[in-house]
Structures are given as structure tokens and as C-alpha cells.
């Protein structure tokens, strides 16, 4: 079965397909061997010794707990929403509705109590839609849309119906290295993370 023209063509076809570099680095970081992080002083100790990764996870969990207490006391709604978006963004979610057509999502995601809007910002950034899934923002049903920029950077967009509490949120925040932009458009609350 080896070394025939068919196999060579198939081999060449698949070997031209490489995992997106941002995803690759994320997965390598999960296994504690991301080369960039290995070379970046502050994380060097963590990732040089796999067993220390567990310590890192424990510290991260403690930070989540501390952050939760902070959130309870915080009156900054936009910070709470940004944290929720950042947390959702950081998860490697599985697309439930894969599509390259933004507005086609309205035809299949019929549990939403609003119509998905194609935001101007997304059009201007020339982001490619990969698919979507249901999620929630502040307890309200929302859509989480997975996007990819021309340079391969992953973005997630969140849309949910305005219920009064989210009407005035317009912020650009950075949460744990994730940039969050929040705004209102056509009667919907929107949050973009990357």
C-alpha cells in the first residue's frame, strides 16, 4: 500500500493541513510544554516541571475562589459580565452548529428569544464564522459564536437580549489576558473576546 501515486497525493493533501498555531500553542500549554511559555521567564518554572502544573492549577482554583468573593462584593456589573465572557472564552467549547454563514444560525438556533444580528464590528474586522452554541450571560440565554480572524486568531462573540441591566454596558476590559469589548447594537447586548 506504500509508495504509489495515490498514496503520495493523499499524503501531500493532508500534510498541507496544519493545526492553527494559536490552537497548537494552547494545547501544548495544556500539556505543559508550550515553547513560548517555557521561554517566558515568569512561567518558566511552572512548565519546566510537569508536577508543578498541578500547583499551578491549585493556585488558579484559589484565584477563582478569591475572584468569586470579589465579584459578590463588586457593584461593577460590566466587570462581572466581562469575567463571565472571559471564562466562557477560555473554554475550548465545542461548536454545536458549525456554519460559515452568520445569519444561517437564526434558522437552526430556535431556542433563542431574539434574532442573531451580524454586528458591524465583525464585518469590519473581516472575521470568519466557524459555528455557534447556546450559552448564558448573567443567567439569560445567549449565543456564543466562534470566529477566526484572517491571521488565525480565535474570537468568540456573545449576543443576548437586553433586559434593562445590560443596556448601558459599553466597556473595553482585559480579563486574565483576554480582551473583552462590550456594547449594545440593534437591541442586543454584545461581547467580543479574543
Amino acid at each position: 500500500m506504500k509508495n504509489n501515486p495515490i498514496n503520495e497525493r493523499i499524503q501531500s493533501y493532508y500534510k498541507e493541513r496544519n493545526l492553527d498555531s494559536s490552537v497548537l500553542h494552547k494545547l501544548l500549554a495544556e500539556s505543559g510544554t508550550d515553547r513560548d511559555q517555557l521561554n517566558s521567564g515568569i512561567f518558566a518554572g511552572w512548565f519546566s516541571f510537569p508536577q508543578l502544573k498541578q500547583v499551578g492549577v491549585a493556585v488558579a482554583m484559589m484565584l477563582v475562589v478569591v475572584l468569586s468573593f470579589h465579584l459578590v462584593d463588586s457593584s461593577q456589573l460590566d466587570q462581572r459580565v466581562a469575567n463571565e465572557i472571559a471564562m466562557n472564552h477560555s473554554k475550548a467549547f465545542k461548536v454545536e452548529y458549525p456554519t460559515g454563514d452568520f445569519l444561517a444560525l437564526n434558522g437552526v438556533m430556535n431556542k433563542l428569544d431574539f434574532q442573531i444580528v451580524f454586528p458591524k464590528a465583525i464585518r469590519q474586522m473581516n472575521l470568519q464564522v466557524l459555528g455557534a452554541r447556546y450559552c448564558s450571560i448573567q443567567g439569560m440565554i445567549a449565543v456564543q459564536i466562534k470566529l477566526k480572524s484572517p491571521d488565525g486568531t480565535r474570537h468568540t462573540l456573545y449576543e443576548t437580549r437586553q433586559d434593562g441591566s445590560l443596556d448601558h454596558i459599553r466597556s473595553n476590559l482585559v480579563v486574565s489576558g483576554t480582551q473583552i469589548r462590550m456594547w449594545n447594537e440593534q437591541g442586543l447586548f454584545m461581547g467580543l473576546a479574543h
Binding site: 493545526l19 492553527d20 490552537v23 494552547k26 494545547l27 475550548a92 467549547f93 465545542k94 461548536v95 458549525p98 466557524l130 459555528g131 466562534k146 477566526k148
Partner: peptide
């Protein structure tokens, strides 16, 4: 895109 999701999982 689906391949990427399955691989990550």
C-alpha cells in the same frame, strides 16, 4: 473547524 474541536476535546 470540527476537526479542531474534536482534537481539542
Amino acid at each position: 473547524a470540527q476537526a479542531e474541536d474534536i482534537l481539542q476535546d
